[in-house]
């Protein structure tokens, strides 16, 4: 069946409907693992790699096949994970602003979630700036960090070599730090 292949291709081309479908797919899998994560099973460690691989297996049953589909899906899934975390961080920040001047007593957990949301939003904004400079850097960061792919899996997903992935990742690290701390940039 070409349907899944077509969906992935459309999402890659930036079709918003297709993209939302991919995000939904990932979100469905997050819902599935949420119980386990919150119940602290598996010593409370969440593994994004397992999640995106499981998600691909479902797609494969629905007709995805071939090296190409797999590579495309992995890169899209990495971006979708980033999107989901970012959406949640934005929602939290919006809620916080919505609460206005009301003095709330937040729990430790709530406060640190808000702080992490703030950090993630900051870094995500920096990633958008980085994307304008070199989109490949951002893709490598997404694969390595948000999908937990290994260097080799990242190379496969982006259709490049292991060495190139290593180089891009190192370059992205420096460039991202520079964007986040412009004062230190001489």
């Amino acid at each position: 069946m070409a349907e899944v292949t077509e969906l992935l291709e459309r999402a890659r081309q930036g079709d918003p409907l297709a993209w939302n479908q991919v995000v939904e797919l990932i979100y469905d899998d997050l819902k599935r693992v949420a119980r386990g994560v919150l119940a602290g099973r598996g010593s409370a460690t969440f593994n994004p790699t397992v999640l995106v691989h499981d998600c691909y297996l479902r797609l494969a049953r629905a007709g995805a096949h071939g090296v190409q589909d797999r590579a495309h899906f992995m890169a899209l899934a990495a971006r979708a994970m980033r999107q989901l975390l970012l959406n949640h961080a934005r929602d939290r920040m919006a809620q916080k602003r919505g609460a206005g001047a009301v003095v709330e007593t937040l729990s430790e957990e709530e406060r640190s979630a808000d702080l992490e949301a703030e950090h993630l939003l900051g870094i995500s904004t920096a990633l958008e700036q980085l994307e304008a400079i070199e989109p490949k850097w951002v893709q490598v960061v997404e694969c390595r960090v948000f999908a937990g792919l290994s260097e080799q899996e990242t190379a496969d997903a982006l259709g490049t070599s292991l060495r190139t992935v290593q180089r891009w990742y190192a370059e992205a690290r420096v460039a991202l730090a520079r964007i986040m701390a412009p004062d230190r940039d001489s």
């Binding site: 693992v33 994560v37 969440f46 593994n47 975390l85 949640h88 957990e109 640190s112 979630a113 949301a117």
Partner: peptide
């Protein structure tokens, strides 16, 4: 911070 932090738990 990313996968074991409070933000991710809140998403879950």
């Amino acid at each position: 911070a990313l996968w074991q932090g409070s933000l991710f738990r809140s998403l879950m």
